[in-house]
């Protein structure tokens, strides 16, 4: 039982990262109805930028700010150059366009920073916390990661529910034409959605880098898990992305703890298939996902 608790706690840290990346995918989906395959590429790129800033200034915090700014800019650039020009891009076209961006970003990062794994400095203590006479598989750093995820979710929820910008973003996501008629500047709203997604992805990248190092391909697997979490959660739901992201982390941790780790992806696939078979619109999704 204590071991189970350890596996669960150990999974929360990695789950929080998956949750943030899933959150970014949900944001672009809500904004433009596009699943952004380049999201992990953007996060990787901004994390490399952060690493350069960190090396230059020595400050973890300045590097994080740098990543956030770069994330927003990169999100806007991708949306502006790649997705805006084609008004009615179908799912396949959008996937392929963002996939092309992903390949290009990874190659560009390889050109600029080289293909090797690079260490990202650890800003907080990353040793197990001792409390109540035992060591827990959580560190101060894990708590920071979970804290960031929590703050971002609460902040985004407030933004969407309590501000006029959030209202217009929701309106645009629901029906761009109607939103335009009611005076929403749709183009600007979409761009802000992408910038927000870029910011969330950038934060996720900077947070995951100290525990896994960074290379042009180091976030690839994150895309698969985050996409899975976002889809099962229901692509429209912020809460769904976070809950399922953390859930995915837990499942991976518990499965590799109790059985062979090579079972983890297979279990993830089975759960994904079962979930979509039972609830095609995702656990937290609206009914719009299923058409017939």
């Amino acid at each position: 039982m204590t071991q189970f608790l350890d596996y669960v706690l150990g999974g929360i840290g990695s789950g929080a990262i998956i949750a943030l990346m899933a959150l970014a995918l949900v944001l672009t989906w809500r904004a433009t109805r596009v699943v952004n395959f380049a999201q992990v590429g953007q996060a990787m790129f901004t994390t490399f930028i952060a690493l350069s800033i960190q090396t230059l200034t020595g400050s973890w915090f300045i590097a994080l700010i740098g990543a956030i700014v770069a994330g927003a800019i990169l999100g806007v650039i991708v949306q502006y150059l790649v997705l805006r020009p084609v008004k009615r891009m179908d799912t396949s076209g959008a996937i392929i366009a963002t996939f092309g961006v992903l390949i290009a970003l990874q190659a560009a990062a390889g050109m600029i920073w080289g293909g090797d794994s690079q260490a990202y400095p650890q800003p907080f203590s990353n040793t197990a916390i001792s409390l109540f006479g035992r060591e827990w598989p959580l560190s101060v750093y894990d708590l920071v990661v979970i804290g960031f995820a929590g703050v971002l979710v609460v902040g985004l929820t407030l933004l969407f529910t309590r501000t006029s910008l959030g209202l217009s973003m929701r309106a645009t996501a629901f029906n761009p034409e109607v939103a335009r008629l009611s005076g929403v500047r749709v183009g600007r709203t979409l761009t802000i959605g992408w910038a927000l997604a870029g910011v969330v992805g950038a934060v996720a990248g900077v947070l995951v880098a100290p525990t896994s190092a960074i290379s042009p391909n180091s976030f690839d697997i994150l895309l698969v898990f985050a996409f899975t979490a976002a889809v099962i959660g229901g692509l429209d739901s912020l809460i769904g992305a976070v809950a399922l992201g953390i859930g995915t982390g837990l499942i991976l941790s518990v499965v590799s703890g109790y059985s062979d780790s090579s079972n983890a992806p297979v279990v993830a696939l089975v759960l994904l298939a079962l979930n979509l078979a039972i609830k095609p619109e995702g656990i937290f999704g609206h009914n719009s996902a299923r058409s017939v």
Binding site: Q3, D6, G11, S14, S212, L252, S253, S256, A264
Partner: peptide, 22 residues
């Protein structure tokens, strides 16, 4: 005996290390 799945990068061996430590 504990193993890992090559390509597993998100979950940084937390459960495997926990298992070995236990």
């Amino acid at each position: 005996q504990v193993s890992y799945f090559s390509g597993q990068q998100v979950a940084p061996f937390t459960s495997q290390v926990t298992k070995m430590k236990a």
